[in-house]
Design a protein around this nucleic acid. Structure first.
Lengths: 191, 191
DNA sequence: TATATTTCTTAATCTAGATTAATTTTTTCA
DNA sequence: TGAAAAAATTAATCTAGATTAAGAAATATA
């Protein structure tokens, strides 16, 4: 199971075997059942998590009490609340499994120790961040230029398998509109 | 002038003097006048830019021909089109000075060479990315939970000096609404 | 295999913010 | 310092998507 992480790292960098092994040894396996929480509002995020299997949603609850999904995480993604993790602040977000899941987690102290010494693992995380930033930028571009219907069809086009994995009301939340409006869009498209 | 960058790096990491100097030596100073372009749509982004002085806007033009600002960059920020830089794709975005500006730039080859060897500079860039990701996350949270008026007052509150630096129609674009609507908000608040 | 729970749909009504089109104010620069 | 350009305002009208309120399907669970 840890091979999912090992392979992911080796796609980006080639650290010395011992260094990589040391890192992998620090990672702890943890399983989550569907609907279990990896992190709840007000808790402190003490780990970074690599998703080996399953799917999580990263969301908050707005003033009106409505859940707003900021992101999903699936296989081969790192997930955590960076703000809470880095700044040691209580989390404003929840991270919840939306499928049975397997993750590998590492705490701040262990991660810091490794990043203080490993050039390649710094490169690995740097490259991951770069890729996420590109994706986030594209997302903001879409948010600022597409209608609700276009957002949905574009997302569907680029993530045909993923739209099957989560309930539609979660997709609607992630895309920034109501489930009722998503139903309307889908009804329009059929005819 | 290069000290702005040097100081910024030293706020995060403490690289060996020679390594830091080697990096700084690769940085080329470039000046931009207000309204000059650092990058235009369809061009390839070949450098990363550290803003030493001034302000830039990062924007694209949507299907209706309207400019949409995704981000601003000011002193002590790195700016570039990562997607174009990393994937060697033509840019979908424009980066334009909105004040007279001074930047230090480094090309891909030089940067890669340095990041292949310097632990500390990898850490530096990793930490920058982490911070940007936290900010982007917060931004998406605001976009998904605040009304136009709340977006404006919140932004104003956190960036009181910055709102003075750019025309209001640019602020409106950045916040995701029209200049007319921003005028309306401001008119409401006065009375 | 029936019941409870979760998810999805439909339809009527409402509203935040867009659009359009002038007009006014501010800034630039010859 | 005065004309032109750029930026900001106002007001009327319009619309994408929200809200509310049922009801229908699908899924889970006993």
């Amino acid at each position: 199971m840890i091979d999912t992480l090992k392979n992911h790292i080796l796609k980006f960098v080639s650290p010395p075997k011992s260094e990589l092994q040391e890192f992998l040894n620090k990672m702890q396996l943890k399983r989550y059942n569907n609907k279990e929480y990896l992190l709840k509002e007000q808790q402190y995020c003490t780990h970074q998590y690599f998703i080996s299997k399953g799917c999580f949603r990263f969301y908050f609850i707005n003033q009106k009490g409505i859940e707003k999904i900021i992101n999903f995480g699936i296989e081969d993604w790192w997930i955590s609340n960076f703000d809470s993790f880095i700044n040691k602040s209580p989390s404003e977000y929840n991270i919840q499994a939306v499928e049975d899941a397997v993750v590998f987690k590492i705490n701040k102290q262990d991660l810091s120790a490794i990043l203080a010494n490993s050039l390649e693992l710094n490169q690995y995380f740097r490259m991951i961040h770069e890729r996420v930033r590109i994706a986030d930028q594209k997302r903001i571009q879409y948010m600022y230029s597409l209608s609700g219907e276009e957002l949905y069809t574009t997302f569907r086009e680029y993530n045909p398998h993923f739209v099957q994995r989560v309930p539609q009301y979660m997709l609607a939340s992630y895309l920034g509109f109501t489930p009722e409006f998503l139903s309307k869009i889908r009804a329009n498209k059929k005819v």
